[in-house]
């Protein structure tokens, strides 16, 4: 399923967080949205998933579920891993009667296998490491076979090896489910290892569009500053 965003605008109070942003992600593609903190990256994901209402513009998707993987996992801490992953199948009106308990157990096991975490169904989120919580949140997100997966800083706060593992799962999920993905990140390894396309945001506007290779080799001043992590350049730390 492709996603097309046209002239999107969102302001919080006086501050325009997203200012006339347009882009398209083709079916099965992985788009990385990069930029410094406070540039409006996560807000785009929240607008696409309807968690935040847009002020103007268009978001065109061709139906199907949109899954969201949160930065801090957002697992339901009073439920076990099994109940977290099976949550939508148990609670959603349209899915509640579709599957038997045996089928739900099979689906949960399959999704846990996909993220390499079989055998932890009865643990609570607080008993898992940060990386494991992220992977459980992947499994929860894909349980309804979504056509689009939105990742909000999936590798933030993880050690390099755990980050590599998460990046591999992003690719694996795309390859096995064919889902279109948008990854919000500011980690270069995540951009280079997962993305087909990159857009860079600054102050709510797109300042660079290209491939991960182009991001590293471009003359674009914004991209150069981002890649070299330089304090000098057109971008200044935005006061939150």
């Amino acid at each position: 399923m492709s996603i097309e965003v046209k002239k999107l605008v969102k302001a919080f109070g006086e501050k325009k967080v997203i200012d006339d942003v347009s882009f398209k992600v083709n079916d099965g593609e992985i788009l990385a949205i990069v930029g410094f903190s406070g540039s409006g990256k996560s807000t785009i994901l929240k607008l696409i998933s309807n968690l935040v209402e847009k002020d103007s513009g268009e978001i065109i998707t061709s139906g199907g579920d949109i899954a969201f993987v949160f930065q801090y996992s957002a697992l339901f801490d009073s439920l076990t891993v099994f109940d977290n992953i099976a949550f939508a199948l148990h609670e959603r009106n349209d899915l509640r009667k579709k599957y038997s308990e045996k089928q739900i157990r099979e689906i949960v096991n399959e999704k846990l296998g996909l993220v390499g975490l079989k055998g932890i169904e009865n643990l609570f989120p607080s008993e898992l490491s940060g990386g494991m919580q992220k992977r459980v949140s992947f499994a929860r997100a894909i349980v309804t076979e979504p056509k689009v997966i939105l990742y909000d800083e999936p590798t933030a706060g993880l050690d390099p090896i755990a980050s590599t593992l998460i990046e591999d799962y992003i690719l694996r999920l795309r390859n096995e489910t064919g889902a279109t993905s948008i990854v919000v990140t500011h980690q270069m390894s995540t951009i280079q290892r997962t993305a087909d396309k990159v857009i860079m945001l600054y102050d709510g506007k797109i300042v660079f569009t290209g491939t991960p290779q182009e991001l590293c080799n471009t003359d674009n001043e914004y991209a150069k500053q981002f890649v070299t992590a330089s304090i000098e350049g057109p971008m200044h730390i935005i006061e939150q």
Partner: peptide, 13 residues
């Protein structure tokens, strides 16, 4: 504050 309510919404519950 831990985004669990947002998670409910994204799971269409």
């Amino acid at each position: 504050v831990t985004e669990q309510i947002d998670a409910l919404k994204t799971l269409k519950v």
